[in-house]
Amino acid sequence: MEPQPTANEAVVPQRRSPTLAQRVRDTPPGVLYGALGGMGAYLVAMRLFQGVSRPEQLALCTAMLGLVVWSDATRRFFIGMLPFLLFGIVYDLTHITQPLFRYLHIHIAEPYAFDRALFGIREGGAVLTPNEFFARHHWPVVDLFTGTAYIVFVYWAIGFAAYLAIFRRDEEGRRLLARFGWTFLLMNVVGFATYYVYPAAPPWYVADHGFGPADFSVRSSAAGAARWDALTGIPYFAGFYGRSADVFGAIPSLHVSYPLLTFLFGIELRRRWLDLASFALFALVSFAAVYLSHHYVLDVLLGVLYTVVAWGIDRWLQARRRAGAAGA
């Protein structure tokens, strides 16, 4: 026979996991309705203008809603990562505005002429842009490293943010995550807006289609990154650029911005390995952008400028906040 608990022994009841309905009821209404409204507007807009909702769009919204209602911890993670989720949605929405390019002047020759004049490489009696030089001279091992860097660059920034959201939940860590996230979003929104203010053709477009009137039927190309696909047997870039919306969005190069911004904010953690890795990735992506014929040197320099200005705005706001706190 099993021993029976004595009168002095407390019987501890087993705690039941809350049901989904209870989790929804426990979610702060502002967060719940804001998330539902935002996701609903996004899906409706994509449905109206594209005529279809892609599986990854539905999966993203389902994951976001799950984070919102599951627990306080997942809600904090959702709020911390919100700028990066908004970045993905804003980028996807650029598919809707893509037809506007037909009414804009596309700059095809100007970026090419700038790079040829300032960074031209003389070979065989002709002056080549760095892109043209590397189109003639490329090597499998460099293709492998540059292509890999071109995959990692965005995940590096998002991984840094996820680390802060999960492992740095102190006040300093939360503040750093918020500053990094909203600066990241601001930089991207301004960069996307520049695509419409100064739409520019990338180097691969000039190599494939020349300097004639802009061909708006052209789809985005993997360019030199296709060599990475062929080398590894993984059609990553063919699939990625097959869905890209910004054929004439070469200026600025936001590829270089993500690891550089991670480096600038990561310095505050005082992790030497992180600083070295972020800066090395930034340097490699900067080279890869030119080597793979996705960007001119001009585009890379402007990407650096946009990043430094965005980071500088954050530093200025922090200085004002500290000055206000000291005055108070």
Rank of each mutant, 00 (worst) to 15 (best):
T6S: 14
S53K: 06
A193R: 10
A45V: 12
A157S: 14
I96E: 05
G181H: 06
R75G: 03
L298Q: 01
A126H: 15
L48R: 13
G125M: 12
Y103S: 09
N8Y: 14
T194W: 08
V300R: 00
F153L: 05
E268I: 05
D26G: 06
A289R: 00
H294R: 04
A193D: 04
C61E: 05
A149L: 04
E132F: 12
G249V: 04
Y155S: 13
G191Y: 04
A288K: 02
P99S: 10
L65P: 02
W182P: 03
Q318Y: 07
A59K: 08
E9L: 08
A207R: 07
V127P: 05
T6P: 09
F77A: 06
D115Q: 07
V31R: 03
H255P: 00
P13E: 12
V52F: 15
A280D: 08
L85Y: 10
D208W: 12
P213R: 14
M39V: 09
V127A: 09
Q50W: 12
R272W: 15
Y42K: 03
L302S: 05
A289V: 03
G181N: 07
P99F: 11
A161D: 06
F216R: 13
F180H: 04
V69L: 01
F167I: 02
A288L: 05
T94I: 11
V218G: 07
L298P: 01
A117I: 08
V90T: 14
S53E: 13
G233A: 11
Y163V: 02
L185F: 13
P29R: 06
L36G: 08
T19A: 05
A200K: 00
D229G: 11
N131W: 01
P13C: 09
L261A: 05
V218Q: 12
V90S: 14
A35N: 03
H295F: 08
Q50E: 15
F240Y: 15
M187W: 06
V304P: 00
V44Q: 08
L20H: 08
C61W: 03
I121E: 06
G173N: 03
S17K: 13
L260K: 03
D115N: 11
